[in-house]
Design a protein around this nucleic acid. Sequence first.
DNA 1: AATTCCATCAACCGCCTTACT
DNA 2: TAGTAAGGCGGTTGATGGAAT
Length: 296
Amino acid sequence: MGRAPCCDKAAVKSGPWTAAEDARLVSYVLSHGHGNWRALPKQAGLLRCGKSCRLRWINYLSPDVKRGNFSPEEEEAIIKLHDLLGNKWSKIASRLPGRTDNEIKNVWHTHLKKRLRKHDSMSEPSNNSPQFTSSEANINQVSGHVSHPDNLSGSFPSCENEHGASSMDHETAITSDSSLFIDSKSSNWSEPEKQSPSSSSSSEGESVNDKSTTQNLSGEVGEIPFEPNLDFWDLLDDVSFTYSGVPVSPVFESLDHQVIFAEEENKREVGSWWWLAYLESELGLEATILNANQDE
DNA sequence: AATTCCATCAACCGCCTTACT
DNA sequence: TAGTAAGGCGGTTGATGGAAT
């Protein structure tokens, strides 16, 4: 007997999310939260597995998610953190505000790993310890970073992490290493158009999820088969957005605005706000907002 | 212009961990 | 303490678009 499936696979939908599903999920989470992911699909009227809902929210729909290319600083941080933590993507993601484990994992496999390998092939492996992979052996060369002191001890080479050894001791050490944490308010965040060509995919910043959401905008949005949460749509209808009493342009050109307006205690709120504006833009409603702004 | 190959990334799968009873 | 449910995580896959031929 195998493990019981988390949900009835025959009764749930799989594959790319439609704009209507996104809207329904967002509407529900914003108004009710996500106390129970497993129960959420039913309550929200989604024919999706709870896990799928959670993943969709965390990796794409959450206002905390920073879209756009990875800045050189972020990439360097990933390299450093991977050197220390191995494939602990969620731990790495926790150090990169706005970035998800999935995104980091993809970037690592599609860009950074190759880059390191390439760098490796161009350099002489003069001092490589046998237990280090070639790419790991060059991480310090690329980043100019000296690993955490613990990492230099014989008991904790990088490759141990890579192969699943516990990283808890490391985590504790790393937690106190502020140099390995990208401040969400830091100007190090770069806008997509400022990205170096070597950064991750060039299209991500401007056409978010054009494989799933955007491609469905043509027909499904107009046929959203559910009753939208009124509070949620009221927010979208409210074009006189303000933050702390200050009028704010509702259409952001980049997520950096989320950072600009993010006082620590209000960061999440603003992020949610930005997201609403973004969603409206994605759903083709930006004209409404822009026109409203111009009228002011 | 058509076809093939490759890179990218969203999403799925299954295992592990944690919280609760 | 053991059993169970749910959340979380990392590995992997498949669809897609663009580049190369």
